[in-house]
Protein backbone atom coordinates (compact mmCIF):
# COMPACT_ATOMS: atom_id res chain seq x y z
CA UNK A 1 0.00 0.00 0.00
CA UNK A 2 2.82 2.34 0.95
CA UNK A 3 4.68 1.63 -2.28
CA UNK A 4 1.50 2.05 -4.26
CA UNK A 5 0.80 5.51 -2.82
CA UNK A 6 4.36 6.61 -3.45
CA UNK A 7 4.57 5.39 -7.02
CA UNK A 8 1.11 6.67 -7.89
CA UNK A 9 1.79 10.19 -6.64
CA UNK A 10 5.22 10.09 -8.21
CA UNK A 11 3.96 9.03 -11.57
CA UNK A 12 0.89 11.25 -11.74
CA UNK A 13 2.66 14.43 -10.68
CA UNK A 14 5.87 13.72 -12.52
CA UNK A 15 4.67 12.45 -15.80
CA UNK A 16 3.30 15.35 -17.77
CA UNK A 17 5.22 18.19 -16.17
CA UNK A 18 8.80 17.03 -16.32
CA UNK A 19 9.09 14.53 -19.11
CA UNK A 20 7.26 16.65 -21.65
CA UNK A 21 9.99 19.25 -21.26
CA UNK A 22 12.97 16.92 -21.45
CA UNK A 23 11.78 13.78 -23.16
CA UNK A 24 9.35 13.45 -26.00
CA UNK A 25 9.79 9.74 -26.45
CA UNK A 26 11.97 6.83 -25.40
CA UNK A 27 12.45 3.41 -26.90
CA UNK A 28 14.53 1.05 -24.84
CA UNK A 29 15.06 -2.70 -24.62
CA UNK A 30 14.99 -4.34 -21.21
CA UNK A 31 15.68 -7.58 -19.42
CA UNK A 32 13.98 -8.02 -16.08
CA UNK A 33 15.32 -10.74 -13.81
CA UNK A 34 13.30 -11.28 -10.66
CA UNK A 35 13.45 -13.76 -7.84
CA UNK A 36 10.99 -14.18 -5.01
CA UNK A 37 10.77 -17.26 -2.81
CA UNK A 38 10.71 -20.19 -5.26
CA UNK A 39 9.67 -18.03 -8.19
CA UNK A 40 12.30 -16.94 -10.64
CA UNK A 41 11.68 -15.34 -14.02
CA UNK A 42 13.36 -13.50 -16.84
CA UNK A 43 11.31 -11.17 -19.02
CA UNK A 44 12.69 -9.57 -22.16
CA UNK A 45 11.08 -6.85 -24.20
CA UNK A 46 10.98 -3.22 -25.29
CA UNK A 47 9.45 -0.19 -23.61
CA UNK A 48 8.04 2.66 -25.67
CA UNK A 49 7.39 5.84 -23.73
CA UNK A 50 5.57 8.91 -25.00
CA UNK A 51 5.51 12.23 -23.15
CA UNK A 52 1.71 12.19 -23.39
CA UNK A 53 1.85 9.46 -20.76
CA UNK A 54 1.16 6.55 -23.05
CA UNK A 55 3.47 3.62 -22.45
CA UNK A 56 3.62 0.45 -24.49
CA UNK A 57 5.60 -2.60 -23.43
CA UNK A 58 6.26 -5.31 -25.99
CA UNK A 59 7.28 -8.50 -24.23
CA UNK A 60 9.19 -10.97 -26.42
CA UNK A 61 10.11 -13.61 -23.85
CA UNK A 62 8.80 -15.81 -22.28
CA UNK A 63 5.61 -15.05 -24.23
CA UNK A 64 4.69 -12.67 -27.00
CA UNK A 65 2.62 -10.10 -25.14
CA UNK A 66 1.81 -6.41 -25.58
CA UNK A 67 0.93 -4.21 -22.62
CA UNK A 68 -0.61 -0.86 -23.48
CA UNK A 69 -0.88 1.60 -20.60
CA UNK A 70 -3.46 4.31 -21.17
CA UNK A 71 -5.09 6.94 -18.98
CA UNK A 72 -7.64 4.67 -17.35
CA UNK A 73 -7.05 1.26 -18.85
CA UNK A 74 -4.45 -1.40 -19.30
CA UNK A 75 -4.69 -3.58 -22.38
CA UNK A 76 -2.86 -6.89 -22.38
CA UNK A 77 -2.88 -8.32 -25.87
CA UNK A 78 -1.51 -11.57 -27.28
CA UNK A 79 -0.94 -10.95 -31.00
CA UNK A 80 -0.31 -14.60 -31.87
CA UNK A 81 -3.52 -15.79 -30.25
CA UNK A 82 -5.40 -12.61 -31.19
CA UNK A 83 -6.97 -12.31 -27.78
CA UNK A 84 -6.38 -10.42 -24.59
CA UNK A 85 -7.73 -8.37 -21.72
CA UNK A 86 -8.81 -4.80 -21.17
CA UNK A 87 -8.55 -3.80 -17.52
CA UNK A 88 -10.32 -0.56 -16.70
CA UNK A 89 -8.77 1.17 -13.71
CA UNK A 90 -9.62 4.05 -11.41
CA UNK A 91 -6.02 5.25 -11.33
CA UNK A 92 -3.67 5.56 -14.30
CA UNK A 93 -1.87 2.25 -14.77
CA UNK A 94 1.94 2.32 -14.96
CA UNK A 95 4.82 -0.10 -15.36
CA UNK A 96 6.48 0.50 -12.00
CA UNK A 97 9.79 -1.08 -13.05
CA UNK A 98 10.23 1.73 -15.60
CA UNK A 99 9.55 4.43 -13.01
CA UNK A 100 13.02 4.01 -11.52
CA UNK A 101 14.56 4.70 -14.92
CA UNK A 102 12.46 7.82 -15.50
CA UNK A 103 13.08 9.03 -11.95
CA UNK A 104 16.69 9.75 -12.87
CA UNK A 105 15.53 12.78 -14.89
CA UNK A 106 15.09 14.83 -11.71
CA UNK A 107 17.99 15.63 -9.41
CA UNK A 108 15.91 14.96 -6.32
CA UNK A 109 14.28 11.88 -7.89
CA UNK A 110 11.02 13.85 -7.92
CA UNK A 111 10.71 13.69 -4.14
CA UNK A 112 10.04 17.43 -3.75
CA UNK A 113 7.14 17.20 -6.19
CA UNK A 114 5.36 14.68 -4.01
CA UNK A 115 5.85 16.62 -0.78
CA UNK A 116 9.09 15.20 0.60
CA UNK A 117 11.34 17.72 2.31
CA UNK A 118 15.12 17.65 2.57
CA UNK A 119 16.06 17.01 6.19
CA UNK A 120 19.82 16.60 5.90
CA UNK A 121 22.66 16.31 3.42
CA UNK A 122 26.31 15.37 3.44
CA UNK A 123 29.00 15.95 0.83
CA UNK A 124 32.03 13.71 0.87
CA UNK A 125 34.39 14.28 -2.11
CA UNK A 126 32.23 13.53 -5.18
CA UNK A 127 29.48 11.82 -3.15
CA UNK A 128 26.31 13.59 -2.14
CA UNK A 129 23.99 11.89 0.35
CA UNK A 130 20.57 13.38 1.04
CA UNK A 131 17.94 12.45 3.64
CA UNK A 132 14.28 13.19 2.99
CA UNK A 133 11.24 13.35 5.27
CA UNK A 134 7.83 12.28 3.96
CA UNK A 135 4.94 14.74 3.67
CA UNK A 136 3.18 15.09 7.03
CA UNK A 137 -0.19 13.99 5.67
CA UNK A 138 1.34 10.68 4.56
CA UNK A 139 3.76 10.18 7.43
CA UNK A 140 1.77 7.18 8.69
CA UNK A 141 2.12 5.41 5.36
CA UNK A 142 5.53 6.59 4.15
CA UNK A 143 8.91 6.72 5.81
CA UNK A 144 12.19 8.51 5.09
CA UNK A 145 14.07 8.34 1.83
CA UNK A 146 17.82 8.36 1.30
CA UNK A 147 19.49 9.19 -2.03
CA UNK A 148 23.16 8.87 -2.86
CA UNK A 149 24.71 10.55 -5.89
CA UNK A 150 28.26 10.00 -7.08
CA UNK A 151 29.50 12.55 -9.62
CA UNK A 152 25.89 13.69 -10.18
CA UNK A 153 24.74 10.16 -11.00
CA UNK A 154 22.21 8.47 -8.79
CA UNK A 155 23.77 5.31 -7.39
CA UNK A 156 21.62 4.35 -4.40
CA UNK A 157 18.10 4.92 -3.14
CA UNK A 158 16.69 3.61 0.09
CA UNK A 159 13.08 3.90 1.18
CA UNK A 160 11.96 3.26 4.70
CA UNK A 161 8.63 2.46 6.26
CA UNK A 162 6.94 4.79 8.71
CA UNK A 163 8.32 2.66 11.59
CA UNK A 164 11.88 3.24 10.35
CA UNK A 165 12.52 -0.23 8.94
CA UNK A 166 13.90 -0.53 5.43
CA UNK A 167 11.30 -1.04 2.74
CA UNK A 168 13.52 -1.26 -0.33
CA UNK A 169 17.04 -0.63 -1.53
CA UNK A 170 17.92 0.20 -5.12
CA UNK A 171 21.36 0.29 -6.68
CA UNK A 172 21.91 2.14 -9.98
CA UNK A 173 24.77 1.44 -12.34
CA UNK A 174 26.02 1.68 -15.96
CA UNK A 175 24.86 5.27 -16.49
CA UNK A 176 24.57 6.92 -19.87
CA UNK A 177 24.02 10.58 -20.60
CA UNK A 178 21.27 12.29 -22.51
CA UNK A 179 21.54 16.07 -22.42
CA UNK A 180 22.36 16.91 -18.82
CA UNK A 181 20.74 13.78 -17.43
CA UNK A 182 22.27 10.47 -16.46
CA UNK A 183 20.16 7.39 -17.01
CA UNK A 184 21.05 4.13 -15.22
CA UNK A 185 21.07 1.09 -17.47
CA UNK A 186 21.27 -1.33 -14.56
CA UNK A 187 18.93 -1.12 -11.58
CA UNK A 188 18.98 -3.72 -8.81
CA UNK A 189 16.24 -3.55 -6.21
CA UNK A 190 15.72 -5.54 -3.04
CA UNK A 191 12.23 -5.26 -1.56
CA UNK A 192 11.91 -6.35 2.03
CA UNK A 193 8.74 -8.06 3.15
CA UNK A 194 7.57 -9.74 6.35
CA UNK A 195 7.67 -13.19 4.81
CA UNK A 196 9.98 -13.20 1.82
CA UNK A 197 12.08 -10.48 0.28
CA UNK A 198 12.34 -10.14 -3.46
CA UNK A 199 15.25 -9.29 -5.71
CA UNK A 200 14.88 -7.61 -9.07
CA UNK A 201 17.60 -6.79 -11.60
CA UNK A 202 16.69 -4.71 -14.64
CA UNK A 203 19.12 -4.33 -17.50
CA UNK A 204 18.32 -1.70 -20.10
CA UNK A 205 20.04 -1.48 -23.43
CA UNK A 206 19.83 0.25 -26.79
CA UNK A 207 18.12 3.42 -25.48
CA UNK A 208 16.82 5.86 -28.10
CA UNK A 209 15.58 9.26 -27.00
CA UNK A 210 13.14 11.59 -28.77
CA UNK A 211 12.76 9.40 -31.82
CA UNK A 212 9.73 8.85 -33.98
CA UNK A 213 8.12 5.79 -32.44
CA UNK A 214 6.70 3.04 -34.67
CA UNK A 215 3.16 3.59 -35.92
CA UNK A 216 1.92 0.48 -34.17
CA UNK A 217 2.91 2.09 -30.87
CA UNK A 218 1.62 5.57 -31.60
CA UNK A 219 -1.69 4.48 -33.08
CA UNK A 220 -2.28 1.09 -31.52
CA UNK A 221 -5.74 -0.26 -32.14
CA UNK A 222 -7.01 -3.68 -31.25
CA UNK A 223 -7.87 -5.75 -34.33
CA UNK A 224 -11.59 -5.96 -34.90
CA UNK A 225 -11.51 -9.77 -34.78
CA UNK A 226 -9.57 -9.90 -31.50
CA UNK A 227 -11.23 -11.62 -28.57
CA UNK A 228 -10.96 -9.22 -25.64
CA UNK A 229 -12.18 -9.85 -22.10
CA UNK A 230 -13.10 -6.67 -20.24
CA UNK A 231 -12.31 -6.67 -16.54
CA UNK A 232 -13.03 -3.84 -14.14
CA UNK A 233 -10.28 -3.20 -11.58
Amino acid sequence: MRDFIFILIFFVTFNDVIYARILKSIQIDFEKHSREKDRQEIIKGTVYFQASGKIVVFVREPVNQWMIYRKDELIIYYPVEKRGFCFTTRFPPYPSFFQAFLGAVKEDYGLTDIGYTLSNHEINADTLTTWWNPPKRLSKQLGNFILVYVSNKITYAESRKSDGSISSKSFYDNHITHGVNYFPLKISTVRYAEADSSLENIFYNNPQFNINLPDIVKNFKLPSDAEIKKIKW
Binding site: K32, E41, I43, G45, V57, V59, E61, P62, V63, Q65, M67, L74, I76, Y78, E81, R83, G84, F87, T89, P93, Y94, P95, S96, F97, W233
Partner: peptide, 12 residues
Protein backbone atom coordinates in the same frame (compact mmCIF):
# COMPACT_ATOMS: atom_id res chain seq x y z
CA UNK B 1 -6.64 -5.68 -7.86
CA UNK B 2 -3.31 -7.47 -8.10
CA UNK B 3 -0.21 -5.53 -9.11
CA UNK B 4 -0.22 -5.16 -12.88
CA UNK B 5 3.46 -5.92 -13.13
CA UNK B 6 2.81 -9.47 -11.97
CA UNK B 7 0.96 -10.09 -15.23
CA UNK B 8 3.88 -9.09 -17.41
CA UNK B 9 5.33 -11.95 -19.43
CA UNK B 10 2.52 -14.31 -18.47
CA UNK B 11 0.34 -16.31 -20.82
CA UNK B 12 -3.33 -15.61 -21.47
Amino acid sequence: SPKQERLMGKSY
